[in-house]
Design a protein around this nucleic acid. Structure first.
Length: 159
DNA sequence: CGTCTTTGACCCGCGC
DNA sequence: GCGCGGGTCAAAGACG
């Protein structure tokens, strides 16, 4: 019986951009919500399971993971403010693989100590799509699934 | 045959 | 300096 509300909109085929038009959500830093209890914050989003977080990453910030194994010195100019958009969804469902119209490739699974359930990491299979998806189960409500989208799709959904 | 899943190992940042 | 936590990649296997 998963006739619950998977997505706020009943038009999964709609453009993702359309769905990202939730201005009813609150604007807060992801860090803030991280400090707070996930469940607590999103708990109110049961009806509006859509949260939008804009994080501004400064050029000086160490957002460089491990791509250039060269000896330091990797100042490739083109350094500008990178705005990462993160959206947290909380939906009540048994399955965590909620198809939103995009193709995702699982690239890792990790176990969080605060939760007896593992955390899954998904990435868009589309080339040039830096969008990442993080799926986690609510530790207090295993029936709830928290999906966190990171980035913006640079392509249309497969529809 | 191509794509995706799965698991372990590795890496990074921070705290103490 | 080391440990912890979290996040990512990679190789092999499974699957269509």
């Amino acid at each position: 019986m998963s006739s619950s509300n998977f997505l706020p909109q009943d038009s999964p085929e709609s453009d993702y951009a359309e769905q990202t038009n939730f201005e009813l959500s609150d604007y807060f830093t992801f860090d803030e919500w991280l400090e707070e209890e996930h469940a607590s914050m999103i708990f109110e989003s049961v009806q509006n399971p859509v949260y939008r977080a804009n994080e501004v990453i400064e050029p000086g910030a160490s957002s460089r993971h491990h791509e250039g194994p060269s000896n330091g010195d990797s100042e490739s100019g083109t350094e500008k403010k990178q705005v990462k958009e993160r959206v947290a969804f909380k939906t009540k469902s048994e399955i965590e693989i909620l198809d939103d119209g995009f193709k995702w490739r699982k690239y890792g699974k990790k176990m969080v100590k605060n939760s007896p359930n593992p955390r899954n990491y998904y990435k868009c299979s589309v080339d040039g799509c830096p969008v990442k998806k993080r799926v986690e189960r609510d530790r207090e409500d295993p029936s709830y699934v928290i999906t966190t989208y990171e980035g913006v799709h640079t392509h249309q959904s497969t529809s």
